[in-house]
């Protein structure tokens, strides 16, 4: 009696998410992979197993232009965001009181859940030829600078998306390391700069790499910034997916792009995690 009751109880809590994710998460993803082998005839999708879409996409120059651009922009964003976030995370982890740190994290989480789209539109207006930044710069006799439809604009957009998250993750990583080790480094006459380089960064390595990984994933998959702030010439991979899906009715080819993106992200994630959890060589 108790035994049957037990398993019924356990199953009730275990099963819902399995059913839901298989139907509406695994199902769609696997179907999308299958779809990359389908054919389009007379504007209608026909189930098939052909490599035609893969050939069409992977032999096109514009696909590889997009791929290289997207990869390069995401890498650049990851490097720039991680570097710019670090001093702020460092200050939040070591130079402020715990209550200030809690409030700072509280405010850093808010933008993550507010409309990214509206924030990008706001940047569009701020960075325009006659926008706020150029109006301010004109006061000190500079400009106007063209910031929209440039890599700079795209970078600002990507950072709007990624900077709060990277600061949060880095701050967690830094705040969790053992203070005694940092103190020991200082006591042994280690300069502050060397303490950061030789003690703090290695100790927080895992968290710092995970933060960078999330930054890469987010910017690699975002279409809003490169479209509205970057001018989309050439398009990034996410924009290519939209164009192919929305205007061309070529869903299978869009699926090829999506699968290539997934494979890239999986490789990057494995590489990053291997790096993050690699044991340091003993000294």
């Amino acid at each position: 009696m108790a035994r049957t009751n037990f398993s019924g109880f356990a199953t009730t809590w275990r099963m819902p998410i399995i059913v839901w994710q298989v139907l509406f998460f695994l199902g769609p993803l696997l179907f999308m992979i299958a779809m990359s082998f389908f054919l389009v005839k007379n504007y209608r999708m026909v189930e098939a197993f052909e490599l035609k879409n893969w050939e069409k996409m992977l032999t096109r120059g514009y696909f590889w232009d997009s791929y290289i651009l997207t990869f390069w922009l995401a890498s650049l964003t990851t490097a720039v965001t991680s570097l710019l976030a670090f001093p702020a995370s460092f200050a939040l982890a070591f130079k402020v009181s715990p209550s200030v740190r809690r409030w700072a994290l509280f405010f850093l989480i808010i933008p993550f859940f507010t409309s990214y789209l509206v924030r990008i539109f706001s940047w569009y207006v701020i960075l325009a030829e006659s926008g706020v930044v150029n109006a301010l710069l004109a006061h000190i006799g500079l400009g106007p600078y063209t910031m929209l439809n440039t890599k700079f604009g795209t970078l600002v957009g990507y950072m709007t998306l990624t900077l709060p998250l990277v600061v949060v993750l880095q701050t967690f990583a830094l705040a969790n390391i053992d203070r005694n080790l940092v103190q020991a480094a200082h006591n042994l006459g280690c300069s502050p700069a060397r303490a950061i380089y030789a003690v703090i960064v290695p100790l927080a390595k895992t968290g710092l790499i995970v933060a960078a990984l999330f930054c890469f994933i987010l910017s690699f998959g975002d279409f809003v910034s490169p479209y509205y702030l970057g001018g989309s010439k050439p398009p990034t991979l996410p924009i290519l997916i939209i164009d192919t899906t929305k205007s061309g009715q070529q869903w299978p080819r869009a699926a090829v792009v999506a699968v290539v993106m997934m494979l890239t992200l999986i490789s990057i994630a494995f590489a990053a995690l291997a790096l993050a959890y690699r044991k340091r060589a003993s000294r």
């Binding site: 399995i18 994710q21 509406f24 993803l29 999308m32 999330f214 975002d222 997916i241 899906t245 999506a258």
Partner: peptide
């Protein structure tokens, strides 16, 4: 605790790490 628990957790926790645009295409097709 049960067998394949890590697979179970991965199935649950993975969706937010997949770019929205890919989820969007997959959902549309499905």
């Amino acid at each position: 605790n049960f067998r394949f628990k890590s697979a179970y957790l991965a199935l649950v926790l993975l969706p937010p790490t997949i770019p929205l645009i890919i989820m969007a295409l997959a959902m549309l097709a499905w």
